[in-house]
Simulated assay, not measured.
Amino acid sequence: MRYPGQVNDEVRRQELGSSRNVPAGQGGEGVTHQCDISLGSGIGGEHDRTPIDNRIGIKHIVNMIHNVDNTSLCRDVLSQLFLVTTLMSADMQRGLAERGLTQTRAQVLWVLGGAERMTQAELAAELKVTPRNVTTLIDALEETGFVRRTAHPTDRRAAVIVLTAKGQKSFARLQSETTEFAKLLFGNLSERDLKTLQGILHDVATKLTELAKETGGR
């Protein structure tokens, strides 16, 4: 049962009888709400003195009292996420452009740096793009000296893609800068907070992947 702030205590006692007070919270319009929850058993006027948080989850009680509508908060969080992704994308594009790379080409270097060598078909599967798109990417990276094609040891039809010395240097720089950037953003967070953030971002990524599949299937 919910009451506007400053409701007369005597009126509450008349309505609820013996009760326990739940601290006031803020309503959706910034109005303070006060609530008394009766623990009466209804037998002979006696009342159950069992602690309320042992009978019903206190969080559930608070949510029930205040009827929390977090739609506005969800929008605020999404706005913050948009801002973060926009800022990070712009910063990444500037840094990569200075080295003659795009985000997609840098992703190829990142994948190759971890695997050392891959066929174009393997790269296409890893990047989730068509073989034709990979061919275009490798052509551009080969022309700019980041990768080179080598003969496949057993399949004459396939080429193995490896990083050149320039590509290896760029990959090492990407690794180092990624590590430093991660420390700059999250170095002050506790392990618990990092794991919480990691879980939230994982859930967001999973949801976005599901939505993309649903949209693509239409």
Rank of each mutant, 00 (worst) to 15 (best):
S79L: 03
D69T: 15
A121H: 13
L39S: 01
T102H: 08
T154H: 11
T32E: 14
R105E: 13
L39A: 01
E122N: 07
D139H: 07
F82K: 09
T136Q: 09
D91C: 13
H60G: 09
R94P: 02
A24I: 06
V111G: 01
A97Q: 10
I138W: 06
G114C: 03
N70L: 01
S18I: 10
M88N: 02
Q80R: 03
S18N: 08
N70R: 12
Q103V: 05
G45P: 08
A106N: 14
K59M: 13
T104N: 04
P23M: 02
T32M: 12
R148W: 08
A121Q: 05
T119M: 09
R49F: 04
A24G: 03
D155N: 01
L101W: 02
S79M: 12
L96H: 01
A24W: 14
H33M: 13
S89D: 11
G27K: 00
D69I: 11
L127C: 15
E46T: 07
H47M: 02
T85E: 11
M64E: 02
L112E: 05
N63Q: 04
E29V: 07
D139P: 00
N21R: 04
E98H: 15
M88K: 10
L112D: 05
R148M: 12
L123H: 01
G27D: 03
S38Y: 01
A125L: 09
S89H: 06
C74G: 15
T130A: 12
V62D: 08
I52N: 00
G100A: 14
T102V: 08
N133G: 00
M88D: 12
V147M: 10
L123R: 06
N70F: 06
S89Y: 12
G114W: 09
E143A: 08
R99F: 13
V77Y: 14
E29N: 12
Q103D: 13
L83C: 15
T130K: 12
L123A: 03
N67K: 15
